[in-house]
Design a protein around this nucleic acid. Structure first.
Lengths: 219, 219
DNA sequence: GTCTATATCTCGATAGAC
DNA sequence: GTCTATCGAGATATAGAC
């Protein structure tokens, strides 16, 4: 139980010499994110990590502990990702572009984590909610809040038209995040999402920024 | 089935009496939609329906059959909901408003089904995909396709500016559907979603229609 | 640290009384 | 149709050899 505490925070995306604990960690994220906490099987995680089932219990005491560890790490990463880049004062257009691109870049790199949090949400999300609740206490850390403040500020200065900043923020997040949630389905409708994912994402970023900017422009 | 003339049943309410099979069905939808097919427990479904576990197997042979039945029914409902109302609209604004309001009304009434399909999506969605694939064959039945055609048509006539109709459609669906997926989280950020859900939805409909219309308006 | 073997428990499914 | 009791498969978790 000590071993997980000590090393979790030092995970890197280094390709050389990936340790057992991290392989377990990655595999767990992958499986949990697709099957949910209950649906996930320890055997599948072990197979995915290329090790024995018993090792899962050696590094993380139980399935519950493993899930908690995976979730906590991903959540931390999720919050800290965007916050810095949003603080600098620039035009609203520049802020929006920064947010959309940064958010979708994160989602591309951490699709597992996105699925995991959505799965949490769907199940009523007691774990996610407790994490969010404490995060909301320190309001300034959440990228979503930063961007929403930016919207309000832009309205005051007359940079964009008057809209409900909370709904606008929700719409922006939805437009960025939902395609990842529904990816298997999206692929059926938009073949490019299957054949050339990078280009699909690039197009999507541009579409969202343009649509929102145009939608918030003062008539 | 049998009419109890002499006894005043304490189970009947002012609503229409709902049979055991229907109660199982509703309970299964509720549980499957939150936990996913694997994560759901037959015991929980039975508890939720207020009956014994064995009865689940009496009405539906197995967990798999039960899931299939629930999914098939919900999916059918989902497709047929909007299609008619979309064929008869004139202006693009009117079509968009019809779609957004109709779609969100459906989602409000069938939040379980929305969750179920999202859960399917997240797990790779073989069941959903097979249903969608056959539905896509008869293209004209899907409301999403109808609306996307409507966007293309509006562009040709010069009613709205030139955009990628597929991305625009995806954005509209995202804006409508995602708030239901993330409802537990949204409630933390927008208290009104918890206290006055009806008003929150009404606001949301209006916001989406206005933002998209303004976003697609010809400069 | 990593494995095999096994104990323990949970869940889906069935049998049979009423 | 509905219940209680139980079986058997498969899952988590532990013990112990190496």
């Amino acid at each position: 139980m000590e071993s997980s505490q000590g090393t979790v925070s030092q995970f890197t995306s280094n390709t050389i010499e990936v340790g057992t604990e991290q392989r377990i960690f990655n595999a767990a994220l992958e499986v949990f994110s697709r099957k949910g906490k209950d649906g996930a099987r320890m055997q599948e995680i072990a197979d995915c990590a290329g090790i024995n089932r018993a090792l899962l219990h050696y590094y993380f005491r139980s399935k519950n502990k493993l899930y908690e560890a995976v979730f906590a790490h991903g959540f931390e990463q999720f919050i800290n990702g965007l916050s810095q880049s949003l603080r600098s004062e620039r035009s609203f257009e520049s802020s929006l572009r920064t947010f959309v691109h940064g958010y979708m870049d994160y989602l591309c790199e951490h699709q597992d984590m996105a699925r995991l949090m959505i799965t949490e949400c769907l199940s009523g999300g007691p774990v996610l909610e407790s994490y969010l609740a404490t995060a909301i206490a320190k309001r300034e850390k959440l990228p979503g809040f930063l961007m929403e403040d930016r919207i309000r500020q832009a309205i005051e200065v007359g940079e964009i038209r008057e809209v409900d900043s909370e709904h606008a923020m929700l719409t922006i997040v939805s437009a960025c995040l939902f395609p990842f949630v529904a990816l298997p389905t999206v692929r059926l409708f938009q073949p490019k999402a299957a054949t050339d994912f990078e280009e699909f994402i690039a197009e999507r970023k541009q579409h969202i920024v343009e649509l929102i900017l145009s939608g918030l422009r003062i008539p």
